[in-house]
Design a protein around this nucleic acid. Sequence first.
RNA 1: GGAGAGAUGGCUGAGUGGUCGAAAGCGCUCCCCUGCUAAGGGAGUAAGGGCUAAUACCCCUUCGAGGGUUCGAAUCCCUCUCUCUCCGCCA
Length: 425
Amino acid sequence: MIDPKILRQATSRVAANLLRRGFQFDTEEYLGLEERRKHLQVETQQLQSERNASAKSVGKAKAQGEDIEPLLAAVKNMGDRLAASETALQEVQTGLRDIELGLPNLLDDSVPDGVDENDNTEIRRWGEATQFDFVARDHVELGEALGMLDFDAASRISGSRFTIVQGPLARLQRALIQFMLDTHTGEHGYEEMYVPYLVHAEALVGTGNLPKFEQDLFKTDTEIPYYLIPTAEVPLTNLARDEIFEASQLPRRLVAHTPCFRSEAGSYGKDTRGILRQHQFEKVELVQFVEAGQSMAALEELTGHAEIILQKLELPYRVVALCAGDVGFGSAKTYDIEVWLPGQDKYREISSCSNYNDFQARRMMARCRNPDTGKPELIHTLNGSGIAAGRALIAVMENYQDADGSIRVPVVLQPYMGGVEILAA
RNA sequence: GGAGAGAUGGCUGAGUGGUCGAAAGCGCUCCCCUGCUAAGGGAGUAAGGGCUAAUACCCCUUCGAGGGUUCGAAUCCCUCUCUCUCCGCCA
C-alpha cells in the first residue's frame, strides 16, 4: 500500500509514477472519495466527542444523586445521528481502502522505462554461454532418456503441469536445495525457517497477492478457506506482521525451502514443455527485514546472495533490471537473474529479487522503533529466490550434459550426492 | 472428535455498567542522591488514526475478532477465532 498521506497530498505525482507501469489511476474518483472521507470523519469524530462528553456528565450527575432525566432527554437523538455518520464514514473508508489495496507500489526512480520484458536492462553477465561439440538436448529429452523424468505418470495422477522426478535426479534436486540452504545460513547470515504451506487470506493481503491476484492461487474449499502458498515469501514476510522490532534486531534475514503452488491461470500454451512452469515447484526463498533507508543497499546484497549460488554451481547467468512495465505489483525495484539454458539457447528467469520498501510493511503493520525518536516506523521488506530449485535442476541438466546424454554432478553438489558424480541411464 | 478454563499495555497481573486507556509490580528512559561492581528518591513510559506546516496542541478509535443491549461497555448478551488442561484418535 502506498502511504495514504502521500496519496492525498501528492495525488498527481503518484498517478504519474504509476503511469510508468502503464497503470491508470483514477484520481478523480479517488479525490472525490477522499474529500467525502475527510468531511465525514471530522463530523463523526465531533459527534463521538459530544457523545462521550454527555455520557460522562450523566455518570457524574448520577454519582452525585442528581436527577439525570433532563440530561438523557437532551442526548436522545444523538445516537441516530452518530450511527448514520459512522455508517457513512465506514462505507467511504471501505471504498478508499479498496482503491488503495488495488494500487501498485511506487516505482523507484532508478527503474528503467519500458512496457514489457523486452525493455529490461541487462546489468551484468557472469560466465560464458555453455558451448557443446554436439547438439544440446533440453531437460525433457535428457530426463526422459535417463528414465528420471516422467510426465505421463504425473499427468495420470494430477494432470498437466506436474512432473515426477525419479531416483538420482530427485536426489539432485534435494542436493540443490540442501546446498542453497547451507550456503545462505552458513555464509550469508540467514536463519532457516520451516513455515506453513497453507495460509489464510489475511497473510496474502499482507504480501500483496490479494485482493488482486486471487486467480493465481489455489484455494481450499474448507469452511475457513486456506490458500496454498505461491512462494515462501508469504509466510516468511508475514513473520513481521504486527511486530515492532528494535533497531538492533535488524536487518533480519530469513531463508526457507518450500514447495510453491501456482494456478498459472492465463499462461495457457506458455512454457508447456518440461518442468519450467509447473503448478508445484520447489524453491529456496530469501527474505529480509531492514530499516527504511537501508533497503536499496539490501537489494543489491540479496541479489548477490542469489548470484553466488549460480557461481558456485558454475552456471552462466545474467542480471537484468526489470523495466517499469515489468516490475511486479508490490515491488519498487526488481532484478531478475536469468540462467543460461542450452536446451532453449537463451537466458531464462531463475530468480527474482525485489525491494518492496514499505508497501508490504504498511499492509501488515511491520515496524521498527526509531532509536532517536522512540517512535515506531514502518520497516522495509525484500525478498528474492535464492534460487528456484526446479529451474536450477533444469539448468544443471542442460549445462552439465554430455554427448551420451549423461549428466555430470556439479562439484559443490557431490558431497550431497553420496559420491555420485554422473547421472547416467 | 468430547469436556473444561482462558484471551487486558513490553511482561506479570487487578479491574463485572459511569471521569478506566485502564491499579499495582517488573522492565525501560531521564533526573537526583550515593566514593564503588549495589541500593535509595523523583518523574516519565501503548498503538493506530483525524486535524495540522508540525514528530506541537486538541480530538477519535482500540482491553482476541465481529455483532448486539445502553445516554454510557474491558465489564452484560450472541457469534467466531486462538491458547491452555484432560479424554479419545493419530504422523
